[in-house]
Design a protein around this nucleic acid. Structure first.
Length: 426
RNA sequence: GUGGCUGUAGCUCACCAGGUAGAGCACCGGAUUGUGGCUCCGGAGGUAGCGGGUUCGAGACCCGUCAGCCACCCCA
């Protein structure tokens, strides 16, 4: 018999983890709504061309990481490796950029890479994109929003903001020429990857970790010297906003991001808790991407959060979310079970917010109480023979020190009301 | 895609010069009649990732393959 496994890099998120995901998603929704961002839901498949053109033909993502295949009509399609391209496509297609537009989306992304911790072939991102504002107040808002999100989750102390400006595409073109001219004189000292990039994507050489390459870079021309005044003052302004917000940052002159569409501001939130996969969130400005897609020239900026990495970080920080039921229902026999069934149907309707777990499969009181305990429920609600006969119900506290008590079943609603009030006040 | 490490019960792991598997936790049941958490007793559960080879005999050795982990690369 064949036993099946999920295919490489595809990960099941099991019930023990879903509460953490749900709390993370709830926090995201709350924070995003509070800033006036609206959800957009996008397809997982787009035409291959869309990604190649926006992310960049010579990036690693496009060169070797895309899940690309021909559909039944022989059209080349690709499972989205990131969300910005599809979001921009939708914005252009539906002409959503007519007014300042704040959007977010959440969902799976696909990259054919070798899996390791914090890296999967299917993973999930929260993406946030803002269209129509070119000034750095937009960049500041995005970063402030991130920090608010970190705070809600309790991970803000574990994340560090790295930020840089990479200028306009004209700035970068001039700088690229200068960089290539310089590096070409030291080709033999560059590592193999960097030599290749000299032809394809020279800016990426900047964040090479190879020591010899780094040495050469020490005397290389700096991008800062090629920025126009406008870019510089905008960056300074952004930094002043961050100071006003009390957000600590590190300006990293060699932070260049891997996707071609970025310009001006780029940033990453990184952590030391995740080993080699330290980037939890990355983003920046992409003012020319809409034009590339045939839209009206529209400035834009955004970022994406790696949700698996965020959950990993939360676990590393020992942040736990364990929702337990409020009530666990125990019954003595068939008649009591039948009684509880109809009784609780009404209770559920009246208290939809209560989590009521009914014991199924019968068994002794002992085994039912064991189950009740393991369920983590706060209270055991018991319909035994005598209770049913007397029109009563027994309530046994499973967690705290209160006394077990037996009350008239008609008083159950009053009791539940109290439980809810207690829960709200704590 | 490159290099390294690993793969034994649900989980964490052990054993053995190569002679046909064990612990802890978890799970199920019991310790007098309707009550959990502690303790004690008992039970169930593994064709040792998969395939091939060496051997009288392999989970242990070799090869392949699949998967996981770590680093590189890159990114979320």
């Amino acid at each position: 018999m064949t036993t099946y496994r999920a295919i490489r890099g595809m990960v099941d998120i099991l019930p023990e983890d879903t509460p953490l995901w749900q709390s993370m998603e709830a926090a995201a929704l709350e924070v995003l709504s509070s800033y006036g961002y609206e959800e957009i839901r996008l397809p997982i498949i787009e035409s291959t061309d869309l990604f190649a053109r926006s992310i960049g033909e010579v990036t690693d993502i496009v060169e070797k990481e895309m899940y690309t295949f021909a559909d039944r009509n022989d059209v080349s399609v690709t499972l989205r490796p990131e969300g910005t391209a599809g979001c921009v496509r939708a914005v252009v297609q539906h002409n959503l950029a007519v007014t300042p537009q704040r959007l977010w989306y959440i969902g799976p992304m696909f990259r054919y890479e070798r899996p390791q911790k914090g890296r999967q072939r299917q993973f999930h991102q929260l993406g946030v994109e803002a269209f129509g504002v070119s000034s750095p107040d937009q960049d500041a808002e995005l970063i402030a929003l991130c920090r608010q999100f970190w705070r809600r989750l309790g991970v803000d102390d574990a994340l560090r903001l790295e930020i840089n400006t990479i200028g306009s595409s004209e700035d970068r073109a001039r700088y690229r020429d200068a960089l290539v001219a310089y590096l070409s004189q030291h080709v033999d000292q560059l590592d193999e990857d960097s030599q290749r990039r000299l032809e394809t994507n020279p800016l990426r050489i900047l964040d090479s970790k190879n020591p010899s390459t780094q040495q050469v870079l020490d005397n290389a021309p700096g991008l800062q010297d090629y920025l126009d005044n406008n870019t510089r003052t905008e960056f300074e302004q952004l930094l002043s906003y961050l100071k006003a917000l009390g957000i600590e940052y590190v300006v990293s002159p060699r932070l260049v991001r891997g996707l071609d569409y970025y310009n001006k501001t780029v940033f990453e939130w990184t952590t030391e808790y995740l080993g080699a996969q330290s980037t939890v969130c990355g983003g920046g400005r992409y003012d020319t991407l809409l034009e590339t897609f045939g839209g009206k020239a529209t400035p834009a900026a955004g970022f994406a959060v790696g949700l698996e990495r965020l959950t990993l970080l939360m676990k590393a920080l020992d942040i736990k979310v364990t929702p337990a039921a409020d009530l666990y229902v125990i019954t003595a026999n068939e008649a009591a079970f039948r009684y509880s069934l109809t009784r609780l149907d009404g209770v559920r309707r009246r208290f939809p917010e209560l989590d009521i777990v009914q014991h199924l499969g019968g068994g002794s009181f002992k085994s039912q109480f064991k189950r009740a305990d393991k369920s983590g429920a706060a209270w055991a609600l018991v319909y035994g023979e005598s209770e049913v006969a007397a029109g009563q119900v027994t309530l046994k506290p499973l967690r705290a020190g209160a006394e077990q008590k037996t009350i008239a079943d008609t008083e159950l609603e009053v009791f539940l009301e109290e439980i809810l009030n207690d829960a709200k006040s704590t």
